Computed example of a mutant assay.
Amino acid sequence: MSVKTLSVTMTKSKHGRLKDHQLCLKGLGLSRIRQVVNVIDTPENRGMINKVAYMVKVEEV
Results as ranks from 00 to 15, higher is better:
residue 42 T to I: 02
residue 36 V to G: 02
residue 57 K to W: 07
residue 21 H to G: 00
residue 60 E to S: 09
residue 4 K to N: 14
residue 40 I to Q: 11
residue 19 K to H: 15
residue 34 R to F: 13
residue 43 P to V: 02
residue 39 V to D: 00
residue 9 T to C: 12
residue 44 E to N: 07
residue 5 T to C: 13
residue 27 G to R: 03
residue 12 K to R: 10
residue 57 K to Q: 09
residue 14 K to W: 15
residue 13 S to E: 08
residue 25 L to I: 05
residue 51 K to D: 01
residue 50 N to M: 11
residue 18 L to M: 10
residue 21 H to A: 07
residue 59 E to N: 13
residue 1 M to Q: 13
residue 44 E to D: 03
residue 41 D to E: 07
residue 17 R to D: 04
residue 26 K to R: 15
residue 3 V to T: 15
residue 11 T to V: 14
residue 30 L to N: 02
residue 4 K to S: 15
residue 11 T to N: 05
residue 19 K to M: 12
residue 37 V to W: 06
residue 51 K to W: 05
residue 53 A to T: 01
residue 19 K to Y: 14
residue 10 M to A: 11
residue 26 K to Q: 10
residue 9 T to F: 09
residue 59 E to C: 05
residue 6 L to D: 02
residue 30 L to W: 11
residue 57 K to H: 12
residue 15 H to I: 15
residue 2 S to Y: 14
residue 31 S to Y: 11
residue 12 K to Y: 08
residue 8 V to Q: 01
residue 17 R to Y: 02
residue 26 K to G: 06
residue 31 S to G: 13
residue 61 V to A: 11
residue 42 T to M: 03
residue 9 T to I: 14
residue 30 L to K: 06
residue 13 S to L: 11
residue 53 A to D: 04
residue 61 V to K: 12
residue 20 D to R: 15
residue 54 Y to R: 04
residue 18 L to P: 03
residue 8 V to G: 04
residue 30 L to C: 08
residue 45 N to W: 06
residue 6 L to I: 07
residue 15 H to G: 06
residue 54 Y to G: 00
residue 59 E to A: 08
residue 22 Q to P: 04
residue 5 T to I: 13
residue 18 L to D: 12
residue 8 V to F: 07
residue 48 M to Q: 05
residue 32 R to I: 03
residue 52 V to T: 02
residue 26 K to L: 13
residue 47 G to S: 08
residue 30 L to G: 07
residue 32 R to V: 08
residue 40 I to E: 09
residue 48 M to Y: 15
residue 59 E to M: 07
residue 6 L to R: 07
residue 44 E to K: 09
residue 10 M to R: 13
residue 9 T to S: 10
residue 14 K to T: 14
residue 31 S to H: 13
residue 47 G to P: 01
residue 57 K to T: 07
residue 38 N to R: 14
residue 43 P to M: 00
residue 7 S to W: 10
residue 32 R to N: 08
residue 12 K to P: 01
residue 17 R to P: 00
residue 35 Q to H: 04
residue 48 M to K: 14
residue 16 G to I: 03
residue 39 V to N: 00
residue 55 M to S: 03
residue 36 V to D: 01
residue 6 L to T: 06
residue 18 L to K: 15
residue 3 V to E: 12
residue 10 M to W: 09
residue 46 R to P: 00
